[in-house]
Nucleic acid binder design. Structure first.
Length: 725
RNA sequence: GGUCGGUUAGCUCAGCGGUAGAGCGCUGCAUUCACAUUGCAGAUGUCGCAGGUUCAAAUCCUGCACCGACCACCA
């Protein structure tokens, strides 16, 4: 054996042995309860980051159960990541001086498909380099035809049940990326914006969005506010930048008399609260901002007999971006004597696009919505009845809160890269025909053949929310029946609302069973100082680089060692190096033992004296210590306490076994005591076995180099104390 | 405003009812003996503050103080 363990040369070979040996593929035994986990599918076109390496927790569970003899499935997959991937592809196009609008839908889709498939293998090989024992024979893509079939069927079913409906309401729209988003995808940031106080008839109003005032349809005051009570119900003539408009004062209990001047302008087309208020008071929804984020005054300019002064103004504003128009308006407000003051120090939360940072415009648009409440109720019920449990437990409350507060879910996206919504609109009667994916020949309502398919695609989370059953129905015959519900869903707590809750809701409703029995949530990986990793800070730890430098085992161990479930962790390179040193320690223990095997001329396991008959004090001590360790580690594994398990093995291997037992054994070995060697080797095997889920490569490699009772590779050797068939 | 988390050795964090732990760092000694990616020895903590429960609390309860995360339609 070499003096030092060199992971690079070993890991690739070992992984190939596992994969070609078929050990990742479960042997289905109807008499046994399976253990199954779905890998949260990484984006097909992107490299893995250190957060993905946290899925090592899944590999640990999987390897543990496989060694216990359970039919064990860890299902790999790749996510088409609709909007996110299209965003990356558009950047790629931009480098070539092109945009997505240069292509027709089919071409664009095909090009992105090719783009993704060129990159896809990269991510999959990175998962291999981490040592993940995924069943590649079942590897599945979110755009697999069978997955799509399930997603279509679900959409149709939900629609038939009235749980999917189409509605026109204000959508969180990114005018740069050209698509709407669900509420969850809006990222709120604290920002300073000027607050404009302007004259409004007999009042002064305060607004941070003066550009929307052209389409105000009412004024709202708190019905309890004595200052304005007398105006409620009155219709007033108000002088604006484009001449007088008439507006009614309406009561709204949610108006805060303390805020601004206590009177609020109502713009149903551009503010969600105003939109609701507009519904209640039957106000028109009249937009002033278009889908490109530009001011649209065509409604005004199309009117006959406009005062030339106002026409000039409207023309000046028309077609310009919001940010450009604001200062122009301020000038005009001043000129008309309508500007009271500007408060520059106003701080508020602004919704931005989570991807590009553009301010989200609430814009009126027709979209498909999922009616969440009935689905959420079932999910909450399942949590309460312990059909699904959380590790750590506190996330149970978080999940319930999310499920209680979800609004209806907008699942339409104005993207090309995704699953196109199987809905056709009739140009004759305006009704929608929804199918299971097959193209209808005519409108289901009026029979007209003038039908056009919706150009939108599904929110990626709508399909990934069905991942547990959509995959298992698509992989191999019988998989769904055998492996569903899956055992554990392990993922970062940051996608609890996006993904975990949605899988619960859709899974329970559409299959009648929870999609997974346990949810294990891990935290964020931060840098060595506890800072969030980001490219701009330059503190990003690249998992592949770390694997090259220290080995996958070291990285894996560093990630679980000393990390509590659900807690963020700081990962410094020093910690990984420390674990590399541990690898080296193990390697040298193996070298030491093989040295004496050679000295004693032992090449076969049965040439060693039997282990079980040891009754000498020194051997006994070792044996009972390792038995204790095994119990402890097994208990920790079963309770998802991986940090404690790793800690216990590390401590035992290095500071008990190597530092004490081996040192004490040296004189005995020098005296030619084979019994001592036999005991040491057997204890070491127990350590390797217990450690294998955490550090699979080095343990397997050492295993292969020493004589053993069975020729089975470590990956399928039995966990001590478990019953194997 | 609401919810959740954190506050433990110089740094980063485990532990969460029985007289303080790990990794890294630090100090001293050791090197042809499996490993310097090492060994041995060692220093460093009234476990955020104040009360309470208990034979016993870093660990449970209450309050407070700072940090942090997430949520919420204050224009």
């Amino acid at each position: 054996m070499d003096k030092n363990f060199v992971p690079k040369t070993v890991e690739e070979t070992v992984y190939k042995t596992w994969e070609s040996g078929g050990y990742f593929t479960p042997v289905i035994d109807p008499g046994k309860k399976p253990f199954s986990v779905l890998l949260p599918p990484p984006n097909a076109n992107a490299d893995l980051h250190v957060g993905h390496a946290m899925y090592v927790i899944e590999d640990i569970m999987i390897r543990f159960h496989r060694m216990k003899g359970d039919p064990t499935l860890w299902l790999p997959g790749a996510d088409h990541a609709g909007f996110e991937t299209q965003y990356v592809y558009e950047k790629h196009l931009a480098k070539q001086g092109k945009s997505r609008f240069d292509f027709d839908r089919e071409t664009l889709y095909r090009d992105i498909w090719n783009f993704v498939h060129e990159n896809r293998g990269k991510m999959e090989n990175q998962l291999r380099r981490l040592g993940f024992s995924l069943d590649w024979s079942r590897n599945i893509f979110t755009l697999n035809p069978n997955v799509i079939k399930t997603v279509y069927a679900s959409f149709k079913q939900l629609s038939d049940e009235g749980l999917v409906y189409r509605d026109s309401r204000l959508v969180n729209y990114c005018t740069k990326d050209g698509t709407g988003f669900s509420d969850l995808e809006v990222l709120y940031v604290e920002r300073n914006d000027p607050m404009y106080y302007m004259k409004y008839g007999p009042f002064t109003i305060a607004t941070a969005r003066p550009e929307t005032k052209f389409r105000d349809t009412a004024l709202a005051v708190n019905p309890k506010d004595k200052r304005y009570k007398k105006y409620i119900g009155q219709t007033l003539q108000i002088m604006g930048l484009l001449g007088p408009v008439s507006m009614t004062v309406i009561p709204d209990a949610e108006v805060d008399p303390e805020f601004g001047t206590g009177i609020m302008k109502v713009t149903p087309a551009h503010d969600p609260h105003d939109f609701e208020l507009g519904k209640k008071f039957n106000l028109p929804v009249t937009p002033i901002i278009d889908f490109r984020g530009k001011m649209d005054f065509s409604w005004f300019l199309n009117q006959p007999d406009i005062d030339p002064k106002y026409r000039e103004r409207a023309e000046k504003y028309h077609g310009k971006k919001v940010a450009v128009v604001r200062p122009l308006m301020v000038e005009d407000l001043k000129a008309d004597g309508l500007l009271v003051k500007i408060d520059e120090a106003y701080s508020h939360r602004v919704g931005t696009c989570w991807k590009c940072g553009t301010v989200i415009e609430p814009l009126p648009l027709e979209q498909w919505y999922v009616k969440v409440e009935p689905l959420a109720k079932k999910a909450i019920e399942a949590i309460k009845k312990k059909k699904v449990t959380f590790v750590p437990k506190r996330f149970e409350k978080t999940a319930k809160q999310w499920l209680t507060n979800f609004h209806d879910w907008n699942i339409s996206r104005q993207n090309v890269w995704g699953i196109r919504i199987p809905a056709w609109k009739c140009t004759a009667c305006a009704s929608w025909t929804i199918t299971d994916g097959s193209v209808p020949s005519s409108c289901y309502s009026c029979g007209s053949d003038a039908i056009i398919q919706d150009t939108d695609t599904f929110d990626t989370w709508f399909s990934s929310g069905q991942w547990p059953f959509a995959t298992l129905k698509a992989t191999k015959q019988g998989d769904f029946d055998y492996f569903y519900p899956t055992s554990v869903m392990e993922t970062g707590y940051d996608i609890l609302p996006w993904w975990v809750c949605r899988m619960l809701m859709l899974g329970i409703h559409l299959t009648g069973k929870v999609p997974f029995e346990t949810v294990y949530l891990h935290g964020l990986v931060r840098d060595g100082k506890g800072q969030k990793m980001s490219k701009s800070k330059g503190n990003v730890i690249n998992p592949l680089e770390m694997i090259d430098k220290y080995g996958a085992d070291a990285l894996r161990m560093a990630l679980v060692f000393g990390t509590g479930a659900g807690n963020d962790q700081s990962l410094a390179e020093d910690k990984i190096r420390g674990m590399r040193n541990f690898s080296n320690k193990l390697w040298n223990i193996a070298r030491f033992l093989s040295l004496y095997l050679d000295k004693f001329g032992i090449s076969e396991f049965n040439q060693l004296p039997p282990y079980a008959g040891n009754r000498r004090k020194h051997d006994d001590q070792m044996t009972s210590a390792v038995t204790e360790l095994t119990k402890k580690v097994t208990k920790h594994m079963e309770k998802y306490q991986f940090s404690d398990a790793a800690n216990a093995i590390y401590e035992f291997a290095w500071h008990t076994f190597a530092d004490q037992y081996i040192e004490q054994s040296k004189p005995l070995l020098e005296a030619g005591d084979k019994q001592t060697l036999a005991t040491l080797i057997n204890v070491f095997y127990a350590i390797l076995t217990l450690l294998h889920p955490f550090m699979p490569f080095i343990t397997e490699e050492i295993w292969s180099k020493l004589p053993k009772a069975s020729e089975d590779p470590l990956i399928i050797s039995s966990w001590p104390g478990s019953k194997q068939s």
